[in-house]
């Protein structure tokens, strides 16, 4: 088998090369995602045979099973896959920009900003404005806070370490603000808001599926286009400038993509930690370090990670629905410590 396949149009204006191994890996991941779409709806308190799930999805379902699959389990599965994908790409881009394997939207405070705005929206506007605007609120929050973090970290340029440290500080402020609003508001009861903050996919609806899929489908190709620039940026700003990359402009757009994806994820399911951190690392061991294939692999791995976390969370202690965020943190935090140990000489 050839090691790679090259595509080139006749005029040589477009050309790209795909490695066979990478393509196989991505194919495998896609296969697992499809598998998830069937196993997700079929597993639960009431087992539904995979065949019946497939039948229901293509529109030939019957009775109670159809309701369970179409109204509850399928949207939930899809939302977990989409949110995981969004977080995976978001984390990958951040790690690429700050050239630091420990960066992720939840660690540097982006998720915190989105949470503050989402809770503010729920508390102060939910009565008068349609809930459909909540993603917009969360994304706005994520954008504002990340611009703020970036400005605060700017001092003759932004060093990764300062960005992460300041992000952790801002995270603390944001979580204080969120707690404050929850305690003060009577609109959301404390335990509800607590669940939401931990990140739970419990109430996933088709609305969430549509919002998330639109965003993921628009922003992923955009991320792929800019992945070339990200590749060059890994060599350092000077080299990237030397090979003709508009470093600052591209970095700004990439950061925007990452932040919007993270904000949308928060709006859909609350603050789910560590998926954005882990997914890119798993993806890197699967497909190597080229950002194009890495973006696709991160999205798929992120989706699968969150899907498995949510599946475990909703089945293992049935009928109690544990927030998926508890699982991702329980697995993710030790992984983070492992990364810290591995990179111990860098800091």
């Amino acid at each position: 088998m050839k090691k790679s396949v090259t595509f080139r149009n006749k005029k040589n204006t477009v050309s790209f090369q795909l490695e066979t191994k990478t393509m196989l890996m991505l194919g495998l991941l896609v296969f697992f995602v499809l598998l998830a779409c069937i196993t997700g709806p079929s597993l639960g308190n009431k087992l539904i045979s995979p065949l019946e799930v497939v039948k229901t999805i293509v529109g030939q379902g019957t009775g109670g099973n159809e309701f369970i699959v179409m109204q509850s389990r399928l949207p939930r599965t899809l939302v977990s896959l989409l949110v995981g994908a969004a977080l995976g790409i978001s984390g990958l881009i951040l790690q690429g920009i700050v050239r630091n394997p420990l960066a992720a939207p939840d660690i540097i405070g982006v998720t915190g900003g989105a949470s503050v705005f989402a809770v503010a929206f729920l508390t102060y506007l939910a009565g008068s404005v349609s809930i459909g605007w909540m993603p917009a609120a969360a994304i706005t929050g994520a954008l504002i806070v990340s611009v703020f973090i970036y400005t605060m970290a700017w001092k003759n340029g932004v060093t990764p370490i300062r960005l992460v440290l300041i992000g952790i500080g801002i995270s603390a402020i944001m979580s204080a603000l969120t707690t404050f609003m929850i305690v003060v508001s009577s609109a959301v009861t404390a335990s509800q808001a607590y669940l939401w903050l931990t990140g739970s996919i419990y109430g996933a609806s088709w609305e969430d599926v549509y919002t998330m899929s639109v965003l993921v489908l628009i922003l992923t190709p955009l991320a792929l286009i800019f992945s070339r620039s990200l590749n060059s940026q890994q060599l350092g700003d000077e080299v990237a400038l030397g090979v003709g990359v508009r470093v600052q402009k591209d970095r700004f757009i990439l950061l925007g993509i990452s932040v919007v994806l993270a904000g949308a994820a928060v709006a859909a399911v609350g603050a789910i930690g560590f998926v954005g951190l882990i997914a890119p690392h798993i993806a890197r061991t699967l497909v190597g370090r080229t950002f194009g294939s890495l973006a696709a692999a991160s999205a798929l791995t992120g989706g699968l990670l969150l899907f498995m976390a949510d599946l475990t969370a909703r089945t293992i202690f049935y009928p109690i629905d544990i927030p998926a965020g508890v699982f991702t943190a329980g697995v993710g935090a030790p992984f983070f410590l492992y990364l810290l140990f591995k990179n111990r000489n860098q800091f």
Partner: peptide, 22 residues
């Protein structure tokens, strides 16, 4: 390193606490 390790340990214990409370 201290800040990062502390953040991770906090997140870890926090998640276990949350799980128990849920």
């Amino acid at each position: 390193k201290i800040v990062l390790a502390g953040a991770a340990i906090s997140a870890l214990f926090q998640s276990y606490t949350q799980a128990m409370l849920v």
